[in-house]
Amino acid sequence: MSDTSDPNPPPLEIHDLTVSYHKKPVLWGVDLEVPAGKLIGIVGPNGAGKSTLIKAAMGLMPLNSGWVKVFGEPVKKNLRRVGYVPQRESVDWDFPVSVMDVVLMGRYGRLGLMRRPTREDKDKARECLEKVKLLPYANRQISNLSGGQQQRVFLARALAQESDLYFMDEPFAGVDAATEASIIELLHELKEMGKTLMVVHHDLPTARSYFDMLLMLNMRVVAFGETSKVFTNELLQKTYGGRLTILSEVADAVRQAPSV
């Protein structure tokens, strides 16, 4: 694998990544090469290291070994091209900021130190808010929103980042069906624009219809490929081990829709 000469480096390349949390390994020996322009779901049981993987990929966690490259460069050098939707519980929603303030934070990375958001940044933020249908709520303090709306605020902030590679940590957690549908539509739109999206997802039955590719994770990569190829009983069993309840649920999903 050449480092600099590749004219089209993959959006994300991970080599032999091992990460521990409190001296307990969470991920080990992860190798991954993600193709561009795909909507990728990351699935796996609780504690499989789904969130850890995307955090490690963005350089938010110390690595025990291995490296991460984003568009052929170490992630630190290419952060401008990385967008992030964290889990909703990761921030304090009582924080004294408005919806607009939060979305503008998506522009901060491009602005760099000391420079203030300009008119254009504000226009861009409004545009992103409009895309997630939250423009009327722009001036609200963020705790006055429903769970689904809060999730969309984070999504709008990520859109404002105008990145090429997105990491999203459970963007569908705690949102209603209608919001989920509009979010997935938005994700497809981003994909059509050539962006690569890696989405941590909890719900297996929907994972099958939502994503082009699935990354099945259980402390290591169990399978990574086209959804139609990897969404099999055998691989799911491998990923989820002996967790029978989930498995039976999934077996039902496989039986009900034999071909996608």
Binding site: K55, M58, L60, L79, V82, V97, V102, L113, M114
Partner: peptide, 22 residues
Amino acid sequence: VLFYKEFLVTSFDPQFARVSGF
């Protein structure tokens, strides 16, 4: 005054701030 933006984003969401390169 100069670093208001930086203090704001690092206080609200430090992980996002790090991904933004701060």
